[in-house]
């Protein structure tokens, strides 16, 4: 198996294709797309709605399977994992932040973050400590006893980020994380995502059409009609490894 070498991208797609069938209409969303994402980078995929960026995110994160091509993440070929193994892969290695915050109304911020950690097998005290630390990192240490109904939209999204972050994933996927937020809260979320990539060395892959994010991304991919139109890098990346597509 020609798994990527250590210097190569941590997340790697090779000639992937994906189509959706609705009735008799078959829509080819991605067609032979190849892409490599470097470790510790904040990569932004932007483009108009319907360009296939969310599908690409779903495929790279192991939420959806490809029709053709191969996806490698952290050295595993995702297409070879069965449903159970894929769940385990996501549990150990990935975090997600969605546009909607998807928090359980009944749980406090601390419990929301703690919940997935138990499934990771962490003992109770350790899970609680890690959850508290994650909430502290997103600036919610003083609000962690509150339920979603008592939090603002920006705070809820920060809880969602803390929930993803507490697992200490190598890969963090974010889908339109700022589109439901006002300017100030959007900026806060952007700063947090940026900091996660910097300080934790987490690979952050973000799908968004929010122009504010462009300035914070290490790399910006513009997509249209299932293809990557442009691939731009921000000014000198301090400690990133070149992640050029093959």
């Amino acid at each position: 198996m020609n798994a990527p070498t250590p210097a190569a991208p941590i997340l790697y797609a090779e000639g992937i294709g994906k189509a959706f069938v609705s009735g008799r209409v078959r829509t080819q969303v991605l067609d032979g797309l190849s892409l490599g994402i470097g470790p510790g980078e904040l990569t932004l995929i932007s483009g108009p709605s319907g360009c296939g960026k969310s599908t690409l995110l779903a495929i790279l994160s192991g939420l959806q399977r490809v029709d053709s091509g191969r996806v490698f993440a952290l050295g595993s070929e995702l297409g070879l994992l069965d449903g159970h193994a894929l769940e385990r892969f996501r549990l150990r290695h990935t975090g997600f932040v969605f546009q909607g915050f998807n928090l359980f109304p009944a749980l406090s911020a601390l419990e929301q973050v703690e919940l997935p950690l138990h499934y990771l097998g962490l003992p109770r005290e350790q899970a609680r400590a890690r959850a508290a630390q994650s909430l502290d990192e997103v600036g919610l240490a003083h609000r962690m006893r509150l339920r979603p109904a008592e939090l603002s939209g920006g705070e809820k999204q920060r809880v969602a980020i803390a929930r993803a972050l507490a697992k200490q994933p190598e890969l963090l996927f974010a889908d339109e994380p700022t589109s439901a937020l006002d300017a100030a809260n959007g900026q806060t979320v952007i700063d947090i995502l940026h900091r996660i990539a910097r300080s934790h060395g987490t690979t952050v892959l973000c799908v968004s059409h929010d122009p504010r994010l462009i300035g914070h991304a290490d790399r910006v991919l513009a997509m249209e009609d299932g293809r990557i139109l442009s691939d731009r890098r921000a000014a000198p990346p301090a400690a990133t490894i070149e992640g050029t597509p093959p």
Binding site: L91, P116, Y119
Partner: peptide
């Protein structure tokens, strides 16, 4: 009513069985 929250947990790797 909680299907999106359950789906999020599943995305984070919490198995369907759990």
């Amino acid at each position: 009513g909680s299907v999106r929250e359950y789906a999020t947990l599943n995305a984070l790797g919490v198995g369907v069985a759990a």
